[in-house]
Each structure stands twice: as C-alpha cells, then as structure tokens.
Design a binder for these strands. Structure first.
Length: 194
DNA sequence: CATGGGATTGACT
DNA sequence: GTCAATCCCATGC
C-alpha cells in the first residue's frame, strides 16, 4: 500500500481498508471491520490537539497509531489524511488467514471467530503492541497493509464503545462476515448498504 | 505530584 | 446482564 492511499479523507480510507490484508510477522488477516476518527469530532483522541500522545495522529499518513485502552489492550489504527490533520482508521476486526496456530497460542482460544473479532483481540493475535506505535504500514515496517481484491459489500453503523459523537455512522464492516465484533451492524436496523 | 477516564475483554451472577 | 482489571496520559492542584 502506498502513502497516497492513506492521505485521502479518513472515511474513504475506512471503507477501502475493509478487504485489505494486515500482516505482522507470520500472522495475517483480512480487515472485516473499521471505524473512522477525525480531529474535528470529540470522540477522536486528536480532538484535544497536538500532545505527546497524539503527535503520531497528526504525523504523515500510512503509519500505525497504537495505544493502550482500559489499561489492558493495545488498539491498532492507521494514520490518515495529510500531515497536520489528526485522523486515523481503527482496525476493529480481522478474518484470520495466515499464522492461525500462532494466533491460537497467543489468544488461548481455539475458535477462528474468536481470534480477531475485536480491536483488542486482533492486536493480541497478531502480536502488535505499543512498541509498534508510529511505525510504517507501507511495507517498510513491522506491520504491513496489503491491497485488496474486489470491494466487499459494506454494512454501516455507529461506532462502538464511545460516549461522544456516538451518533456518527462511521463504522464499516464486511456485510454478513462472522469475524466482525459485537454488536454486528445489520442491514435491517438503521444501517446502510454501500 | 495526584487523580480520573477510557475507541475492551472475559469472568461471573 | 453486571463488573473488575489495569495503565497511559491529560488535566488540575
């Protein structure tokens, strides 16, 4: 993937990342769920401005923003939009494709659908941690994002687990995919087809 | 320097 | 359904 892909508007990148592969070492999976975050809305860490924590978000596109959530989990984002804009796509779920036994060992569970069906789960399965914060996703870093084939059908809904700007429909998932985290956006109840 | 709040998960009632 | 675990960092004294 090249830097221009991530330099585009974050909502567009969030849509186009669904179906792409994320690789870290021997473990890899296809992105089935994303969420967009932008400094113009209060749910985004970058909303407060440039700090030690957020400087990666305002940096050049195509880098990883990894942070610790609830003191326990590492969450993986892809920094988007031109340098100076604080925006990123949160990778919320993967469909495991390579290194599945390694993922099972790291996660301590067997079921394929439980390996990467959540933002904290997939970083544990891939072995991604805070040390990867700020590294390149373009092929010259430990985590690599690889292009997808045909665009999958998308389910769209509100973002999960936030208290501010919770109404924005900035969550995108591969429609009908069993590796998407709960709650699953459904075609029938308020979510849109794209 | 002390405090409080999470872009979550898994265990338990 | 409820709830604790646990730590980084922003904020306030």
């Amino acid at each position: 993937m090249d830097a221009e892909f991530f330099a585009r508007p974050v909502l567009q990148v969030a849509r186009d990342l669904v179906g792409c592969t994320v690789r870290h070492g021997a473990a890899a999976g296809v992105v089935v769920e994303t969420e967009a975050y932008h400094d113009s809305e209060p749910a985004c860490h970058a909303h407060i401005g440039l700090t030690a924590r957020t400087h990666v978000l305002f940096g050049p596109p195509g880098r990883a923003y990894v942070y610790r959530s609830y003191g326990i989990h590492a969450l993986l984002n892809a920094v988007c939009e031109p340098e100076g804009v604080g925006a990123a796509v949160l990778v919320r779920a993967l469909e495991p494709t390579e290194g599945i036994e390694l993922m099972r060992a790291r996660r301590g569970v067997e079921r394929l659908e439980e390996l990467c069906s959540g933002p904290g789960k997939l970083t544990q399965a891939l072995g991604v941690g805070l040390a990867d914060n700020g590294t390149s996703l373009l092929g010259d870093g430990p985590i690599v994002v690889e292009p997808r084939g045909p665009a999958p059908a998308l389910a769209v809904g509100p973002r999960v687990g936030i208290t501010k700007a919770a109404e924005l429909p900035w969550r995108f998932a591969a429609a009908g995919n069993r590796h998407v985290s709960q709650p699953r956006p459904r075609h029938a109840s308020g979510s849109l087809e794209a």
